[in-house]
């Protein structure tokens, strides 16, 4: 008797599930929103006038435990200026076939040039395509930004750029602050 009702109990569980809400996510049709601090693909940010924030200091490459980042510095000149100050990244590469998305690089970045987005659809069919260069990594030009090289538009020296860098537009805004704290928790 107990056995008989017991098996019905079991089927009951299965049957009850037919009326429950489906728990399966609907990726890729409505991709889920990852946690705000999910470690996704990197972004190299820009100053409000479009100059690159990256100064080519290679601290990200140093911090990287997987040796996924390669940077070569270069000299800014008055004719060819890519970032405020003296130095910029002539070559910047992140090898996503090595990157483990640990985020040590963005912690190491002294200018908050390197931040992470929540993008994760990165699979490619060649290892070459997985090496992202400045072309892929640089943030898009927002309204008011100009494609470098161009002279410093926001001030005389690089110091003018770093004062107030917290309120810069672009993806580095609030990169070190919880976006939730701004009262929007969607």
């Amino acid at each position: 008797m107990g056995t008989f009702t017991g098996s019905f109990k079991g089927f009951g569980v299965t049957f009850a599930h037919m009326f429950r809400k489906v728990i399966t996510t609907d990726y890729p049709f409505s991709p889920p929103k990852p946690a705000p601090r999910y470690h996704g693909r990197h972004i190299l940010n820009r100053h409000p006038d479009g100059l690159e924030k990256c100064i080519g200091c290679e601290l990200c490459a140093w911090a990287c435990p997987a040796d996924a980042i390669y940077v070569e510095g270069g000299d800014n000149t008055d004719e060819q200026r890519f970032s405020p100050g003296e130095r910029y990244a002539k070559i910047y590469q992140i090898n996503y076939a090595r990157c483990i998305f640990c985020g040590l690089c963005i912690e190491a970045c002294p200018t908050r040039s390197l931040t992470m987005s929540n993008e994760y659809e990165l699979a490619r069919d060649s290892r070459q395509d997985l090496i992202f260069t400045k072309k892929e990594l640089l943030a898009p030009l927002l309204p008011g930004m100009e494609q470098p090289p161009h002279p410093m538009l926001l001030g005389e020296t690089d110091k003018d750029y770093y004062v107030g860098a917290l309120t810069n537009p672009g993806t580095s805004v609030g990169a070190e602050r919880a976006p939730i704290s701004q009262g929007d928790a969607e």
């Binding site: 080519g56 200091c57 290679e58 601290l59 490459a61 140093w62 070569e72 510095g73 270069g74 000299d75 003296e86 130095r87």
Partner: peptide, 9 residues
């Protein structure tokens, strides 16, 4: 050598 590399790499 200026800005070409960092000592640690």
């Amino acid at each position: 050598y200026r800005f070409r590399a960092r000592p640690f790499d």
